[in-house]
Design a protein around this nucleic acid. Structure first.
Lengths: 160, 160
DNA sequence: GGATTTTACTTGACTAGTCAACTATCGGCA
DNA sequence: TGCCGATAGTTGACTAGTCAAGTAAAATCC
């Protein structure tokens, strides 16, 4: 999280002419996603004292309620793999934002739950983050948003 | 780089209904970008024995020609910051794919050049990567590609 | 021409993603 | 009942991104 947002824009200027429109579209996709991801991360990290991924895990655990979720069920809801989540949750536990305990029924499973302190942290971030969700695509009108979603999903689903 | 591509698709299914179309659009953007990024990384890493970022740096250095580029000029062409590039290039140097030497004119600068071995590695990857650049948006027709680019750039530039 | 500021990195420490290998436990089944 | 394969998670080692702080060589200023 540093002053890289401006240089994302520069990246375009410095790039040589594209071999094709499709290649240009691919770069546009990656740069746009990187820009919004960066803005989200900056907000969460500066206001929440947690990283963007830690925030995502807290949201998932809030959604899971008081009984919590086994570790690997959290992974399934993220773009990440298992070894990473173990350590990420260990860091959240160290901060007192989640708790873990082995399931009584199946002693292989480890249930993770959000703590009251974790809930309070999320609550403090909710309003501002909902707002930037809206703002990020605020420059598109209703029709454009629909087209945007349609094209992006088409591209994503099409990948072999 | 593991079998995470399928679960990206699942992420959508498991997500609760969206608060708004704009929120849905934001997730569509991030997931689509992640999917193509993942595919690119998988190809480069399996065929090239270099990571996606290392590949990007090699491309930049190939473009720079025989005289090479100072370290920080490489950063400007990427979505990354300076400390990262120093170490990334050190790893490429260890693999014999780039060389570094201090500039005679300004002894603060370190020029980086791609080696013949680096060029050979890139050449071996060129055809297949140009192909996936085309394939990635292959499901969109000419008009759709133009709209895609227009909307993505609008979103990117609009970010405060 | 010497002090100060700026520039171009470099290093350290931490978070994170990824693969391979490992442990503990569970469920079946002979 | 005791083994066997599958499941849940952990650990180690490596690549990478990021911030803060440091170094060395210009460039600038007085």
């Amino acid at each position: 999280m540093d002053a890289k947002a401006p240089t994302v824009a520069e990246a375009i200027r410095q790039t040589k002419p594209f071999a094709s429109k499709r290649q240009e579209g691919l770069l546009a996709l990656v740069l746009a996603a990187e820009t919004v991801r960066w803005r989200f991360a900056q907000l969460v990290e500066s206001r929440g004292e947690v990283t963007a991924q830690q925030y995502n895990v807290l949201r998932i655990l809030r959604g899971a309620g008081a009984e919590g979720l086994p570790t690997l069920s959290i992974v399934e809801r993220m773009i990440e793999n298992a070894p990473g989540i173990t350590r990420l949750i260990a860091r959240l536990e160290a901060k007192g934002l989640v708790g873990r305990n082995r399931s009584a029924g199946d002693r292989r499973q480890v249930f993770c739950r959000i703590t009251p302190r974790g809930l309070a942290k999320l609550k403090a971030l909710d309003a501002v983050l909902n707002q930037i969700d809206e703002d990020a695509l605020g420059c598109l009108n209703e029709n454009e948003v629909a087209t945007f979603i349609r094209l992006l999903n088409k591209v994503r689903i099409h990948q072999p």
